[in-house]
């Protein structure tokens, strides 16, 4: 047995372990919403529940948890898309227009949460050459998080600013705070902050990994600040070249 073979065997073992852990995590994360939806439907099918209010509540719960499972699959496909870079090639795009479009996309969700989204951007277009669909996935995930984890009555601020070497996009929300020890965990697939469920009971834990993968693909960087005085801010820096 050569040392080269041993190295290859060790790498294969590691790959198998990582693959198995990932499959176990995905299975468990998918099983929870499906099991909840199925539980509601089984109780309804048993005929034991006749109160129309209960019937309606269980049907809505089943629908909602079915949608959670679908969202998880969609996010996994999105993550796969950004990781394998199968999206359309880079092209010039106006980031101000893209950010305003993403903001409009979440207008109804923000109203439901009693949150206002404000975009602060230069009056002129900010044009950068990027994979457009990847940028939209990134900014939608950032805004989605900012809205979902805001306390009602607050504003979600989205700032776009030109910098010396490119563009900076910053989302700020007031609500869920991320503790220092969790800073390293937020970009890990399926990880959710312990207090996240209080704001949004259902989440896939894949939004920020999608954001980070997209930012890295753009050659940029992302940073996080979270404290009770300033709220929670994610700042994405994208180089212009």
């Amino acid at each position: 047995m050569t040392s080269g073979n041993e190295t290859a065997d060790a790498l294969n073992d590691k790959f198998e372990r990582v693959k198995n852990t990932f499959m176990r995590t995905v299975s468990h994360n998918l099983r929870s919403p499906i099991a909840a939806a199925q539980s509601c439907l089984r109780v309804l099918a048993s005929g034991a529940v006749t109160d129309p209010e209960d019937v309606s509540k269980l049907l809505n719960n089943a629908l909602e948890r079915g949608e959670d499972a679908l969202a998880l699959v969609d996010d996994m496909l999105a993550l796969l898309e950004v990781r394998t870079e199968t999206l359309p090639p880079p092209a010039e795009m106006d980031l101000v227009k893209a950010v305003r479009g993403a903001s409009d996309y979440f207008a109804a969700a923000a109203r439901n949460r009693q949150v206002e989204i404000l975009v602060e951007a230069p009056p002129e277009p900010v044009v950068v050459c990027l994979r457009g669909k990847m940028f939209v996935m990134m900014i939608r995930n950032l805004i989605d998080n900012a809205v979902k984890y805001s306390d009602p009555g607050n504003k979600v601020m989205i700032g776009i600013a030109k910098t010396g070497g490119g563009v900076e996009i910053k989302t700020t929300s007031r609500g869920l705070l991320i503790g220092g020890p969790d800073f390293d965990n937020i970009f890990i697939e399926f990880w959710r902050a312990p207090n996240a469920k209080q704001y949004s009971p259902h989440g896939t834990g894949l939004g920020l990994p999608i954001v980070k993968t997209a930012v890295e693909c753009f050659g940029g960087s992302i940073s996080l600040l979270s404290d009770s005085e300033n709220g929670t801010s994610f700042t994405v820096s994208i180089p212009s070249t």
């Binding site: 929870s32 909840a36 939806a37 539980s39 509601c40 089984r42 109780v43 048993s46 034991a48 529940v49 109160d51 209960d54 509540k57 269980l58 719960n61 089943a62 909602e64 948890r65 009971p201």
Partner: peptide, 11 residues
């Protein structure tokens, strides 16, 4: 999980 609570409570 509120969906599980609701289903057991209704039952």
């Amino acid at each position: 999980d509120p969906a599980i609570v609701d289903s057991i409570a209704a039952l």
